[in-house]
Design a protein around this nucleic acid. Structure first.
Lengths: 202, 202
DNA sequence: GTCTATAGCCAGATAGAC
DNA sequence: GTCTATCTGGCTATAGAC
């Protein structure tokens, strides 16, 4: 059955996402994925030839959720300030629902050249130039203080993503309950935007 | 020989650092560590009972390099502005020599509760209060704009560490050679401090 | 302390019945 | 398409000679 096929395939992918995102490529076990999917180990190989290929499917589908957020920063029209406020709010909201996602992606890309290649390919359409130009123009018109587009871009991403990349350690340092941690993140939706804008405004 | 013992032990630890930092706990192979140390696999078990224990030794000795940097931020005396400038410069310089280090720590802590326990223990002496008080005092005296100590602390860490946590992806986006990437990091030593200070100054 | 050889286990992959 | 049973390889860990 075609419907059944697609259903099982989707169930597997979903289960694989959970396990791979928790344990990483090397730490994950096919058995655990099968258990979480409520099916047999052999089925995993029936639908996705090998562990490698199943992982790649997970990686791609996960990355596909993140990539558009980069495009947004770089290709969106509108004033810099407006853009920054919207993006910070949207990015942090998004990651509060999927907190493991950025960590998963960066971890795997850091050690496997194969994933770098995929990322490279997906991001080939990303164009820093539009953003760089806008920043440069605002600098020339004295709307903002001198800063390179790249540096501003990195700073925006850093302030948005960092807490999600290092949650466990951060928790030990600032010593908060999960609830308080979420409140802190909630605050950041506006705090971070204010912080950035104050840093660049004339 | 006691000297020989300590020497071999140190050689193993050094080799293990390299391999574990590149591959992580699950991805690393004892054989590879032995090769890199130029000795036999059995020796690893002679000196460090198990892979787990060898890894723990690596993790602890690596974390021991990072922890003091947190203390510095939180316990140092001196004005906020002074402190920020010094810290940013020192942290980025440090990580430019050991770029894999923060990524390694955060990756492992993210998935293994055992390491969280170690981190918790090591950071038990870290006290946010002194820093929080200083920030609050500066806010009350209108030296800086209203901000919570925690948020400022997170922002400082984020801007310092982020490029090192996501180097490969960042490289694809901003599309730089290694040399240019290092120049960009070099710039950040002052750029980031300026950025932060502008964001909080009255 | 250092090596070779090997035990023992576990995980990914496949064969084959239904 | 889905299952059970099994193969195979690779990895940690140890036994034992030197």
């Amino acid at each position: 059955m075609n419907k059944k096929t697609r259903n099982t395939e989707a169930v597997i992918l979903e289960a694989a996402k959970h396990v791979f995102q928790r344990k990483g490529m090397d730490g994950a076990r096919m058995q655990e994925i099968a258990d979480e999917a409520g099916i047999n180990k052999a089925m995993l190989h029936y639908y996705y030839k090998s562990k490698q290929q199943l992982f790649m499917a997970v990686f791609k589908s996960t990355f596909a959720l993140l990539a558009p957020q980069l495009f947004e920063i770089l290709n969106d029209n509108g004033s810099l300030e407006e853009k920054i406020r919207q993006l910070v709010e949207r990015h942090i909201s998004f990651m509060m629902v999927q907190p493991d996602l950025p960590c998963f992606i960066f971890q795997e890309v850091n050690r496997t050249p194969e994933f770098v290649a995929h990322v490279k390919n997906e991001l080939s359409k990303v164009n820093m130039e539009k953003f760089n130009c806008q920043v440069q123009k605002d600098v020339e018109q004295k709307k903002i203080l001198p800063i390179k587009g790249e540096q501003l871009f990195i700073n925006i991403l850093a302030l948005n993503l960092f807490p999600f990349l290092v949650t466990p350690v951060l928790n030990e340092i600032i010593n908060k309950s999960n609830e308080e941690f979420n409140e802190m993140l909630e605050d950041r939706k506006t705090e971070v935007a204010d912080f950035i804008i104050r840093a660049i405004k004339v």
